[in-house]
Design a binder for these strands. Structure first.
Length: 593
RNA sequence: GGGGUAGUAGCUCAGUCGGUUAGAGUGCUGGCCUGUCACGCCAGAGGUCGCGGGUUCGAGCCCCGUCUGCCCCGCCA
């Protein structure tokens, strides 16, 4: 039997009840989370978005109401009227926020039944993710996911308030926009009215926010969806959300200071954590040298050690040859890991091979000596010098990689993170920020035989490097900065080029012909000539930020309706084929598969 | 495009060396139970071992292919 709401009005959330409500009459509505039927008394945990409350059906209070409770199953939707009472002595549940009280139900309506669920909503079983994604509406009922989604809302609201309070205007930019070269692959949207032409979904509102600066809006922000048609990862979805900001008449330090304040406010309001300001800064060059990556996790040490000079003249041919051919030798000291088995070291070796390393040399420090297949190639002086560089102590495991700089830094940088994880050095409740600055402006793309922007083509070179953009592109540094939290890049930005001459030069360096750049970026180049203020900005990845705030392992766990690694939605079954009629209207033919 | 990993009851998993009737817990259904809270007790139902092919007297298990989820490389200014 299905009953109607009628004139019943909810008086509050189940999860908000406290001892202060004792004695009051309440009307609650929610889902039957669990039912405990004693034949006489029936207990049901009624659940809504704020939590659980125990409601009690006593045949002596109402035989009819008790009879209804006998029919209730998991996830039935109920409305109940009753009185809040303290729980009898000895039956208080300290594990429940509302555990001091319960509701004696006098009237009950079964608003809707539910089929038996495909999986249980309790926290004791890890359900396969494909099932969770297919039945996302059920998964979203689970308290853990619910808490993450609610926290995400709080972060977004805190962001809007902070930025509004600091004079930023929230301005929307188009989703149907123009495809541009550079950067990620675009998602395309066919134009029905202009057959054969396409809009692109924005990879970010980059050009539009710069144009808003040119238009004089001075401070802009948006919590905005961005789209990139690239392969997925645990921290990458094809559509994701940025906190996008831009400011005029400022320099790098102004932005950094403003945005540190935003982060501190978010962590205070959403998490109750105080972030110490200012956030430390580190140059890109230092990050690569000490950690091998531009997003170092500073919650732990295990820093990389430079050994090239020590071993380049050694009798170990592998190292000497690498050094002679422009490669480098670096290592890291896995403290107290000399106990690692052959298998464990083999696993580490396989791991570094993923990043192109040919091998992983190792030394165990046992009984004050080197135990290693490579020990025999080194003189006592060389060993002493390496011990000093590593800070080697009894029981340590020294690891070495020799190769091109990129391979060495990549593999050791990732190995450092793996070791920290395996050694239990990662505390999810410890939040360590760092700004990475002074990125290179351009890097040589070996595949395409051209220079490519490290950040994006609108990023300004450092003032002192401007004169070398054309003559020595590799030495130029950019006015770019990333914010890194626990080894994750959670934001990045730059001071932009605001002079047409320099912007044109940049496009030239990136190999765009005059014609090409007019077609692709003409409107920006035009706009730059009508009085562009110095400006710059930043964008934060809201999904990654919330992932870290909630201790989640994937941004899928902080997005209400995420996609699988193949870019599908298991709930809606997108993407899908469409009717021929739709294709005809768009002037599109699909190729046979 | 590539590497790795998983797929057995609704769910979470076990399944020995290739061997007879594929198991457990939980959920579900029915019965009992007035202070439980992952309630308890009793009984019952429940299987395309992802899919296709092969080897074999015999395949959940071995081989080949394929699909799907997840992790990673490439890719992601």
């Amino acid at each position: 039997m299905i009953e109607f709401l009628g004139d019943w009005k909810r008086t509050g959330y189940c999860g908000d009840l406290t001892a202060a409500d004792i004695g009051s009459s309440v009307t609650l509505m929610g889902w039957a989370h669990r039912r405990r039927d004693h034949g006489g008394l029936i207990f049901i945990d009624l659940r809504d978005r704020e939590g659980l409350a125990q409601i009690v059906f006593d045949p002596e209070v109402s035989k009819e109401t008790h009879g209804k409770a006998e029919d209730v199953r998991s996830e039935f939707v109920l409305a109940v009227k009753g009185k809040v009472i303290p729980r009898p002595e000895g039956t208080v549940n300290p594990n429940l926020k509302t555990g001091a009280v319960e509701i004696v139900v006098s009237e009950c309506k079964i608003l809707n039944p539910s089929k038996t669920l495909p999986f249980t909503l309790d926290e004791y079983v890890d359900v396969a993710e494909n099932l969770r994604l297919k039945y996302r509406y059920l998964d979203l009922r689970r308290p853990q996911l619910q808490e993450s989604i609610i926290l995400r809302s709080r972060v977004a609201q805190t962001t809007r308030k902070y930025l509004s309070d600091n004079g930023f205007l929230e301005i929307e930019t188009p989703f149907l926009t123009k495809s541009t070269p550079e950067g990620a692959r675009d998602f395309l949207v066919p134009s029905r009215i202009n057959k054969g032409q396409f809009y692109a979904l924005p990879q970010s509102p980059q050009i539009f926010k710069q144009i808003l600066m040119i238009s004089g809006y001075d401070r802009y922000f948006q919590v905005v969806r961005c789209f990139r048609d690239e392969d997925l990862r645990a921290d990458r979805q094809p559509e994701f959300t940025q906190i996008d900001c831009e400011m005029s008449f400022i320099d790098r330090d102004d932005i950094i200071k403003m945005m540190e304040g935003l982060m501190a406010t978010i962590f205070r309001e959403a998490k109750g954590v105080e972030i110490e300001l200012p956030v430390p800064r580190m140059t890109y060059q230092e990050a690569i040298r000490r950690f091998g990556v531009d997003n170092p996790d500073l919650r732990f040490g295990l820093e990389l050690v430079e050994l090239t000079d020590v071993v380049k003249g050694s009798g170990f041919k592998v190292f000497a040859d690498v050094a002679a051919s422009g490669g480098i030798i670096k290592g890291l000291n896995a403290k107290k890991c000399a106990t690692f088995s052959r298998k464990e070291i083999d696993d580490l070796t396989e791991f570094v091979k993923i990043y192109g390393a040919k091998g992983l040399a190792y030394v165990k420090i046992e009984n004050g000596e080197w135990h290693s297949p490579i020990a025999k190639f080194f003189t006592a002086d060389e060993i002493a010098a390496m011990n000093k560089a590593y800070g080697a102590e009894e029981g340590d495991l020294l690891l070495f990689v020799a190769d091109k700089p990129k391979v060495v830094n990549d593999s050791l940088g990732k190995l450092r993170n793996l070791l920290a994880k395996n050694l239990g050095l990662l505390d999810k409740n410890n939040f360590v920020f760092v700004w990475i600055t002074d990125f290179p402006l351009l890097e040589w793309d070996e595949d395409e035989k051209r220079w490519a922007a490290v950040h994006h083509p609108f990023t300004a070179p450092m003032d002192e490097d401007v004169d070398y953009v054309e003559s020595d592109p590799g030495r130029c540094r950019a006015k770019a900065y990333d914010l890194v939290l626990n080894g994750n890049e959670i934001g990045g930005g730059s001071i932009r080029i605001h002079q047409e001459v320099i912007q044109s030069l940049m496009f030239k360096m990136l190999g765009h012909s005059e014609e090409d750049k007019r077609e692709k970026f003409g409107f920006l180049l035009d706009a730059l000539e009508y009085g562009t203020p110095p400006h710059g900005g930043i964008a934060f990845g809201l999904d990654r930020l919330v992932m870290l705030l909630t201790g989640s392992d994937s941004i899928r766990d902080v997005i209400a309706f995420p996609k699988t690694q193949k870019g599908t939605c298991l709930m809606s079954e997108a993407p899908s084929t469409v009717d021929d009629k739709q294709l005809r209207e768009l002037g599109i033919k699909t190729l046979a598969k």
